[in-house]
Nucleic acid binder design. Structure first.
Lengths: 197, 197
DNA sequence: ACCAAATCAGAATGAGAGTTCTGATTTGTA
DNA sequence: TACAAATCAGAACTCTCATTCTGATTTGGT
């Protein structure tokens, strides 16, 4: 054929995800992306399209990565409240004390792009609903194990946990200490537990 | 003396607050501000300084406005859980179904500016702590009225409510319906109530 | 009425953005 | 080996931004 591509799109997209996650959409320039990934403008535009389209693909990969890394285990039978707690602990560890200022790409999208970009808003809604649903399924398993009160509406609680995750991310980005975030996780998960003590 | 200023700084700052709230820092240009406020560049720079400094003043006025409008009543004796619920209801009403895409300036600041701007991050921490403290004081009053469980650590719960407010704002900006946000408010406040039923 | 100082509206400036274009380079195939 | 197609690095282009500058205008004090 001809000259072959010298970069792996998936790897490149991962680096782009990191950039967008830490700085957001507007604050990340194509020049930043070229420098960080080492991929030429030609390669970026030819492979991913415009910056806006690149962002959409980064958002999808970000969600897929979080899904595989964290939320998949909630869909397996036997998922427990500890699994949910572990997800929060992992995310909290990423959020604070991190020099990389790693942020939440969902929040960046919601604040910067969602209001003006109907398509991206739809994508974001779908991803957030998926997240809430995964929490709900995990909560249902935990309920079967007697770890969650029978009074809890798992769908509503799933949305609560999604919302909590975003609140934590905002506080983490503002520089609040890990102890504060841990306290919020404890309160939230504690409120779902059986009231017997 | 000489020619007098033709605008009221406080009124202008209110308009700037609205702009920054709905679009964030980067997406709001000085041209936007000139057009919306009707104030000349000369007036803006002379009165408020650079865009970054203008934003800081807008953030302070935003917080002060929210404080006077919503949180002051929590500091009065006799504050009840209904006062807290009313604050959430008002904020939720602003967040969704709004054509204005009114967002939360705290979140914009946290996501766009806080990591890079140490001073602004400090300001934001102070404002958020004040918000948590107001919640805590309100919760303490509500506890005295028997509306909140005696087991609740009001300081921790205050931080929880602050975090919840941010989670709600993110979901609202993503376009989730009011019912979803109301459900989260109900779950959160419900978890604080006395467990007797 | 007139001066001086501060205002206004908008042009000018310089930096940085996203995107496209260009010549040189690489690589699979004939 | 030579061709052709696709890549690369980076210049070029156009636009927007924040900020400064400029000439005209307003206004309080003498």
């Amino acid at each position: 054929m001809n000259r072959a591509r010298t970069f792996d799109p998936h790897t490149t997209l991962s680096q782009v995800v990191d950039l967008f996650s830490s700085k957001g959409y507007s604050e990340t320039s194509m020049e930043d992306i070229v420098q960080t990934t080492g991929v030429s403008r030609y390669g970026l535009y030819g492979t991913f399209g415009t910056k806006r389209e690149l962002f959409e693909q980064a958002l999808e990969q970000y969600a897929e990565g979080m899904g595989k890394q964290s939320f998949l285990r909630l869909l397996e039978p036997g998922a427990s409240l500890d699994h949910i707690r572990a997800i929060f602990d992992e995310r909290v560890a990423d959020m604070c004390c991190a020099e990389e200022h790693k942020g939440c790409l969902f929040i960046h999208t919601a604040m910067q792009l969602a209001p003006q970009d109907e398509e991206l808003r739809g994508v974001l809604q779908r991803l957030m609903k998926r997240m809430s649903k995964a929490f709900a399924i995990g909560l249902d398993s935990a309920k079967g194990r007697g770890e969650v009160s029978k009074d809890v509406d798992v769908d509503a609680a799933g949305e609560l946990l999604t919302s909590t995750m975003f609140g934590l991310a905002v506080l983490g980005r503002t520089g609040f200490p890990k102890a504060t975030l841990d306290g919020i996780v404890d309160s939230t998960l504690g409120s779902l537990q059986e009231e017997s003590k």
